[in-house]
Simulated scan of single mutants.
Amino acid sequence: MNVTLNNGIEMPALGFGVFQTPPDTTTESVAEALRVGYRLIDTAAAYGNEREVGDAIRRSGIDRAEVFIETKLWISDYGYDRALHAFDKAAGKLGVDYIDLLLLHQPLTADFEKTIGAYKALETLLADGRVRAIGVSNFMPEVLANLLKHTSVVPAVNQVEVHPYFTQQDVQAADAEHAILTQAWSPMGGITSYAGDANRSTFNDPVIGEIAEAHDRTPAQVMLRWHLQEGRSAIPKSVNPQRIAANFDVFDFELTADELARIDGLDTGVRGGPDPSAITLEAFGRDIPEA
């Protein structure tokens, strides 16, 4: 199942994420995901595992053109020249000549000129054919609007926290207004499991559980199907082979309109991840190694 981005590029709707996957297990996990059928792999400079993602893709024997590689530049490499070099670092670690989708990982709101400079570098990379599509991550509507005022290319993707307990309808509406694809990180609400109340996890939610039982599916499969039917991309992660396979097995059932609405109704408005406006170089800056 593919989605067409606003620049005409096709991308798999369901991908495989490697956030917080240690480098020494990333290669094996990505290899298993590719074996199962995933063709979109999402990583980031800040994850420290781009090299292992590239290794897994090469070892898979799958033609490079068949794998959609998505990565993100970290705030420490913002500014025009630094972002151009950050692309070289990422491509070198991944072992590729081009990157399919390159995102800015966070908005640096305290120094937005650097954010604008970095995005203009992405525009240059796009024009030069070194990336096929560009986008952003964790950009709230007002920040997105500010970026659009100072740049020329509308982002193809905005990757943000979206799951049944935090749907960010305002972000999704702003994305849709500009034909930007909303891509969900923590799409199954795994981040809710860290909130200190295991019983308040999306995986244990009675509504999701009831829907899953009705379809003879897992709660995870129901949540991923919810994303796909509502037009979002999703990038679940796992290091467990059985779950990697199960998360990909979501294309042969369909949720009803009522079931989608019931899941929509679970939104709490409570963010699980950090507030994007709180991301600063002082608190979150880190050097991204050359190799």
Rank of each mutant, 00 (worst) to 15 (best):
T4M: 05
G8I: 06
I9A: 05
M11G: 12
M11H: 04
A13M: 10
G15Q: 10
G17M: 07
T21S: 13
T21G: 05
P22G: 03
P23Y: 11
T27N: 09
E28F: 08
V30Q: 02
A31H: 06
E32D: 13
L34Q: 01
R35M: 03
V36E: 03
V36D: 08
G37Y: 00
Y38F: 06
I41T: 04
I41F: 02
D42M: 06
D42V: 05
T43Q: 00
A45R: 08
A46V: 15
E52G: 07
G54K: 04
G54F: 03
G54L: 04
G54D: 03
D55A: 14
A56D: 09
R58M: 13
R59C: 03
I62G: 09
I62C: 01
A65F: 13
E66K: 15
E66F: 08
F68E: 08
I69C: 00
E70Q: 13
L73W: 10
Y78A: 12
Y78K: 11
Y78R: 12
G79E: 01
Y80I: 01
L84F: 01
L84W: 00
H85R: 15
A86D: 03
F87Q: 11
D88C: 10
D88E: 15
D88K: 12
D88Y: 02
G95S: 07
V96A: 08
D97M: 13
Y98N: 12
L101H: 09
L101V: 06
L101W: 04
L103R: 00
Q106M: 03
L108V: 11
L108K: 01
E113I: 09
T115N: 12
T115C: 09
I116V: 15
Y119D: 00
K120W: 00
A121H: 01
A121P: 01
A121E: 00
T124M: 03
L125G: 03
D128G: 13
V131W: 10
R132S: 11
V136P: 01
V136S: 00
S137R: 03
S137P: 02
M140D: 13
M140C: 04
M140I: 05
L144K: 14
L144D: 02
L148P: 07
P155V: 05
E161S: 13
P164W: 04
D170I: 09
D170R: 12
Q172L: 14
A173H: 01
A174I: 10
A176R: 14
A176S: 15
E177G: 10
E177P: 11
A179G: 13
S186Q: 08
M188R: 00
M188Q: 11
G190E: 02
G190R: 05
Y194G: 04
A195Y: 01
G196A: 07
D197I: 07
D197N: 14
T202A: 15
N204H: 11
V207L: 02
H215L: 07
D216Y: 12
P219E: 00
M223A: 06
L228W: 11
Q229I: 08
G231Y: 11
G231R: 11
K237F: 02
V239F: 11
A246E: 15
N247L: 07
N247Y: 00
N247R: 08
D249N: 12
F253W: 05
D258T: 08
A261L: 04
D267L: 06
P274R: 13
D275W: 10
D275A: 14
I279A: 08
L281G: 11
E282H: 11
A283M: 02
F284Q: 04
F284V: 00
G285F: 05
R286N: 04
D287E: 15
I288H: 01
A291C: 13
